[in-house]
Write a protein that binds this DNA or RNA. Sequence first.
DNA 1: AAGGAATTTGCAAACCATTCTCATTGGCAT
DNA 2: ATGCCAATGAGAATGGTTTGCAAATTCCTT
Lengths: 150, 150
Amino acid sequence: MAEGLSAFDNICNRLRNHSYKLTPQRQTILRTFLQHVDVHLSAEDVYMLVKHQYPEIGLATVYRTLDILADIGVLQKNDFGDGRSRYEFTRTDEHHHHHLICLRCGSVSEFDDDLLESLETIITKKTGFEVHDHDLKFYGHCQSCQKELS
Amino acid sequence: MAEGLSAFDNICNRLRNHSYKLTPQRQTILRTFLQHVDVHLSAEDVYMLVKHQYPEIGLATVYRTLDILADIGVLQKNDFGDGRSRYEFTRTDEHHHHHLICLRCGSVSEFDDDLLESLETIITKKTGFEVHDHDLKFYGHCQSCQKELS
DNA sequence: AAGGAATTTGCAAACCATTCTCATTGGCAT
DNA sequence: ATGCCAATGAGAATGGTTTGCAAATTCCTT
C-alpha cells in the first residue's frame, strides 16, 4: 500500500493501471461507495445515491462501473438471493467473512471465520477439485426479528 | 418411510397430503426427475425432457410444479450463479453436502461434510443470529478442466 | 495548447429467467 | 355422475441487467 495515499487515490491508480479512464462518473460512484463501507449496496442503491450529486448519470454507467471495480478486485459482487447483486469492498486482510441473511427482514450481517481454509485443503485432497474460492451464507432470523416474532 | 412403496408413490402421497392434485403433468415431471437423480436440472432442462413424453406441457406448469416440490421438501432449489435455478432431490440422510462449482465448464459436483453444524452453534452464541440453514459453495477447477488447462 | 484515436456515456431497446393473467380443463370428494 | 375449485397452457408482463449506438469525453501525442 502506497504511503500518504487515500483509499480513493489508491483505487484511482488501480483503475489507471488497468487502463481504465478516470471519468467523473466513476469517481463519484467510488466516492459514494467509500461513504457506505458498512452496507451492501445494489446497483439501484448506488444509482439513487449518486444521482443526488450527479443527476445526469445513467443506470447503465453504474452497472458498468461496478463491473469494472469488481473486475480489478476493488469490489466483491454478492448474491444474497433477493434477485439483485449487491456489492461490498473486498477485504484487504486475510480473514474470510460469511454472511448472515435474515429471512424475515432481509438484513445482512457478517461473521469472521477462517475455518474453511482447512476444509478447502481437505476437499482438494479428497476429490481433486482445485478450490479457488468459497461462498458461505447462513439463513435465519436476526435478533430484532426474533423479538418481533415472539 | 412406508414399506413397499416406490419413491414415486411415496412422493405422490406427499403431494396428496399437502392437498395438491395429482395431475398427469406433475407425475411426468416427477418421473423425469427420478430418472436424473445425479444431475442438477434447471426448469428449462426439465421442460425439454418432459416435452418428449408430454408435448402439450407448458413451461409455466414446470415452474409451478418445481415450486411445489420444493415447497413440500422433495426438491431443493439451488443457485449456482449461472442465472437460473437448479433443482436436486433433497437428501434424506442427515449429512449436509456442499457444491463444488467449476469456473471453467460449469459442472457441479458434491462434497459431504458436517462441519458447519458446529459453526452454526458458534454463530448463534456469538452474534444472537438464529441460524436455520446454510449454503456453502466452492469455486475452482474440476479435475478434467485442470488437465485441459495444463 | 490543440488534435485525434479510442473509451466512455446516456438513452432506449433488448434480454432472459421467472411470474402473472385469464379463459379453459380436469381431479377428486361427495 | 356432479360440482367446486385447483391446475393448465398461452402469451403477456415483470424486473434486474446488458447492449447498440451516436455523441461526448478522456488523455496521449505533437
